[in-house]
Protein backbone atom coordinates (compact mmCIF):
# COMPACT_ATOMS: atom_id res chain seq x y z
CA UNK A 1 0.00 0.00 0.00
CA UNK A 2 1.33 3.41 -0.93
CA UNK A 3 2.18 5.87 1.81
CA UNK A 4 0.32 9.15 1.62
CA UNK A 5 2.73 12.03 1.41
CA UNK A 6 2.18 15.23 3.33
CA UNK A 7 1.60 17.07 0.05
CA UNK A 8 -1.03 14.54 -0.86
CA UNK A 9 -2.73 14.93 2.51
CA UNK A 10 -2.55 18.72 2.22
CA UNK A 11 -4.09 18.46 -1.25
CA UNK A 12 -6.91 16.29 0.03
CA UNK A 13 -7.70 18.90 2.66
CA UNK A 14 -7.58 21.77 0.17
CA UNK A 15 -9.65 20.02 -2.49
CA UNK A 16 -12.02 18.06 -0.30
CA UNK A 17 -11.23 14.94 -2.28
CA UNK A 18 -10.35 12.03 0.02
CA UNK A 19 -8.43 9.74 -2.30
CA UNK A 20 -6.15 11.69 -4.59
CA UNK A 21 -3.75 9.65 -6.64
CA UNK A 22 -0.17 9.52 -5.42
CA UNK A 23 1.29 9.56 -8.90
CA UNK A 24 -0.50 12.79 -9.68
CA UNK A 25 0.37 14.19 -6.27
CA UNK A 26 4.05 13.53 -6.90
CA UNK A 27 3.86 15.20 -10.31
CA UNK A 28 2.04 18.24 -9.00
CA UNK A 29 4.34 18.57 -6.01
CA UNK A 30 7.29 18.54 -8.37
CA UNK A 31 5.74 21.16 -10.65
CA UNK A 32 4.69 23.43 -7.82
CA UNK A 33 8.05 23.12 -6.10
CA UNK A 34 9.78 24.21 -9.31
CA UNK A 35 7.62 27.35 -9.40
CA UNK A 36 7.45 28.01 -5.65
CA UNK A 37 10.66 26.48 -4.26
CA UNK A 38 10.46 28.27 -0.93
CA UNK A 39 6.75 28.65 -0.38
CA UNK A 40 5.51 25.15 -1.19
CA UNK A 41 7.68 23.56 1.53
CA UNK A 42 6.46 26.27 3.91
CA UNK A 43 2.88 25.42 3.02
CA UNK A 44 3.52 21.76 3.69
CA UNK A 45 5.06 22.69 7.03
CA UNK A 46 1.99 24.78 7.81
CA UNK A 47 -0.17 21.78 7.00
CA UNK A 48 1.86 19.55 9.32
CA UNK A 49 1.39 22.06 12.12
CA UNK A 50 -2.34 22.35 11.37
CA UNK A 51 -2.69 18.59 11.29
CA UNK A 52 -1.60 18.48 14.91
CA UNK A 53 -4.51 20.71 15.86
CA UNK A 54 -8.04 19.43 16.58
CA UNK A 55 -9.47 21.60 13.82
CA UNK A 56 -7.01 21.03 11.03
CA UNK A 57 -8.96 22.97 8.42
CA UNK A 58 -9.46 25.93 10.73
CA UNK A 59 -5.82 25.95 11.69
CA UNK A 60 -4.73 25.86 8.07
CA UNK A 61 -7.16 28.66 7.18
CA UNK A 62 -5.65 30.78 9.96
CA UNK A 63 -2.16 30.10 8.71
CA UNK A 64 -3.14 31.07 5.16
CA UNK A 65 -4.94 34.19 6.31
CA UNK A 66 -1.81 35.36 8.05
CA UNK A 67 0.62 34.77 5.22
CA UNK A 68 -0.16 35.98 1.69
CA UNK A 69 2.63 33.91 0.17
CA UNK A 70 1.24 30.75 1.73
CA UNK A 71 -2.25 31.67 0.54
CA UNK A 72 -0.95 32.13 -2.98
CA UNK A 73 0.67 28.73 -3.18
CA UNK A 74 -2.43 27.17 -1.62
CA UNK A 75 -4.44 28.80 -4.40
CA UNK A 76 -2.17 27.31 -7.01
CA UNK A 77 -2.29 23.91 -5.33
CA UNK A 78 -6.07 23.92 -5.56
CA UNK A 79 -5.86 25.16 -9.13
CA UNK A 80 -3.54 22.40 -10.30
CA UNK A 81 -5.77 19.69 -8.87
CA UNK A 82 -8.89 21.19 -10.39
CA UNK A 83 -7.45 22.10 -13.79
CA UNK A 84 -3.98 20.49 -14.10
CA UNK A 85 -2.48 23.94 -14.54
CA UNK A 86 -1.58 26.82 -12.28
CA UNK A 87 -0.12 30.29 -12.35
CA UNK A 88 3.55 30.76 -11.66
CA UNK A 89 4.71 33.68 -9.50
CA UNK A 90 4.96 35.86 -12.62
CA UNK A 91 1.36 34.89 -13.52
CA UNK A 92 2.34 32.91 -16.58
CA UNK A 93 0.55 29.59 -16.79
CA UNK A 94 2.18 26.24 -16.08
CA UNK A 95 0.08 24.06 -18.40
CA UNK A 96 -0.88 20.40 -18.02
CA UNK A 97 2.16 18.21 -18.63
CA UNK A 98 0.13 15.51 -20.30
CA UNK A 99 -3.39 15.01 -21.67
CA UNK A 100 -3.91 12.54 -18.83
CA UNK A 101 -3.29 15.28 -16.28
CA UNK A 102 -5.79 17.52 -18.06
CA UNK A 103 -8.40 14.78 -18.06
CA UNK A 104 -7.85 14.19 -14.34
CA UNK A 105 -8.90 17.76 -13.49
CA UNK A 106 -11.34 17.69 -10.59
CA UNK A 107 -13.46 20.51 -11.89
CA UNK A 108 -15.20 18.28 -14.41
CA UNK A 109 -16.13 15.74 -11.77
CA UNK A 110 -17.34 18.48 -9.42
CA UNK A 111 -19.71 19.91 -12.02
CA UNK A 112 -20.85 16.42 -13.07
CA UNK A 113 -19.54 16.83 -16.59
CA UNK A 114 -16.46 15.42 -18.29
CA UNK A 115 -13.25 17.06 -19.41
CA UNK A 116 -14.01 19.17 -22.46
CA UNK A 117 -12.85 17.21 -25.52
CA UNK A 118 -12.86 13.91 -23.63
CA UNK A 119 -16.05 11.89 -23.35
CA UNK A 120 -16.43 9.86 -20.18
CA UNK A 121 -16.17 6.15 -20.80
CA UNK A 122 -19.50 5.66 -19.04
CA UNK A 123 -21.35 8.13 -21.23
CA UNK A 124 -23.04 5.51 -23.43
CA UNK A 125 -22.37 7.62 -26.49
CA UNK A 126 -24.92 9.61 -28.43
CA UNK A 127 -27.63 11.30 -26.40
CA UNK A 128 -26.23 10.73 -22.92
CA UNK A 129 -26.57 14.49 -22.42
CA UNK A 130 -30.36 14.32 -22.55
CA UNK A 131 -30.44 12.71 -19.10
CA UNK A 132 -29.68 13.96 -15.61
CA UNK A 133 -26.03 13.18 -14.91
Amino acid sequence: METTTDFQALSELLTGEPHLKKKLADAYERRLTAAYPADLPRLIDAYRAADAEPDTAGALQSALDGDAALARVARETIAVWYTAQFARPDDTQDPPETPAQYRAGLIWKVIKAHPISATPASSNGYGYWTHHP
Partner: peptide, 8 residues
Protein backbone atom coordinates in the same frame (compact mmCIF):
# COMPACT_ATOMS: atom_id res chain seq x y z
CA UNK B 1 -20.15 8.08 -35.91
CA UNK B 2 -22.99 9.84 -34.14
CA UNK B 3 -21.97 12.73 -31.89
CA UNK B 4 -20.26 11.52 -28.74
CA UNK B 5 -21.00 14.71 -26.80
CA UNK B 6 -17.44 15.80 -26.07
CA UNK B 7 -18.56 19.43 -25.62
CA UNK B 8 -15.75 20.45 -27.92
Amino acid sequence: SACQGNSS
